[in-house]
Simulated assay, not measured.
Amino acid sequence: MSVITLPKAVGDFIAATNAHDATSLATVFSDTATVRDAGKTWTGEAELREWIQGHLIDPKVVLTPTSFAGDRLIASGDGDFPGGPLSFALMFAIKHDKITDLAIEPV
Rank of each mutant, 00 (worst) to 15 (best):
T23L: 02
T43W: 07
T17I: 06
I52S: 04
V35Y: 10
H96K: 14
V62A: 07
E47N: 09
I99G: 09
A89V: 14
Q53T: 12
F13S: 01
H96L: 02
I74N: 14
A26H: 10
W42Q: 01
F68H: 08
T5M: 07
G11R: 13
V107G: 00
T17Q: 03
I14R: 06
H96M: 00
L48T: 01
D97I: 08
P65D: 07
E45C: 00
L25T: 10
F68Q: 08
Q53R: 09
V62G: 00
F29H: 02
H96N: 15
D101C: 02
F92L: 08
G83H: 10
H55Y: 12
W51T: 04
P65H: 10
S67T: 14
I52P: 05
T27E: 15
T100H: 11
H96Q: 13
A16W: 13
V35G: 05
P82K: 13
A69N: 14
T43A: 02
T43P: 03
F81P: 03
D71L: 00
T66A: 06
W51P: 02
G39A: 02
I52Y: 04
F29P: 05
D31Q: 14
S67G: 12
R49P: 08
W42S: 09
L73F: 10
A46I: 08
N18Y: 12
V107H: 12
E50F: 05
D37R: 08
H96F: 03
T27H: 15
E50C: 00
G77M: 14
A69H: 11
L90A: 12
T32D: 15
G79N: 13
G70V: 07
P7R: 08
D58R: 13
G39Q: 01
D97S: 13
T32L: 02
I57M: 09
D58Q: 14
V3I: 09
T17W: 10
D101F: 11
V28L: 04
D80E: 15
D21H: 08
S87N: 14
G77A: 15
A19C: 03
G11E: 15
T43Y: 04
S76W: 06
G84Y: 10
A93H: 11
T64G: 03
V61G: 04
V28F: 12
E47H: 03
A103M: 11
A22S: 15
I94A: 04
I4K: 11
R49Y: 07
K40I: 00
A9E: 10
G77Q: 08
P65M: 04
A16V: 05
I94W: 04
K95G: 01
T64C: 03
F81W: 10
P59I: 07
V3Y: 09
H55N: 12
L90G: 01
T23W: 01
D58Y: 07
I99N: 06
G11L: 04
A33Y: 09
D12F: 11
M1S: 15
S87C: 00
V107P: 00
A89C: 09
I74W: 02
G11D: 15
T66I: 14
T17N: 11
P59N: 07
T23S: 13
D58C: 04
F68A: 02
F29L: 01
W51I: 03
G79M: 05
V62T: 15
I99E: 07
L56D: 06
A19N: 11
T43H: 07
V28E: 09
A22E: 15
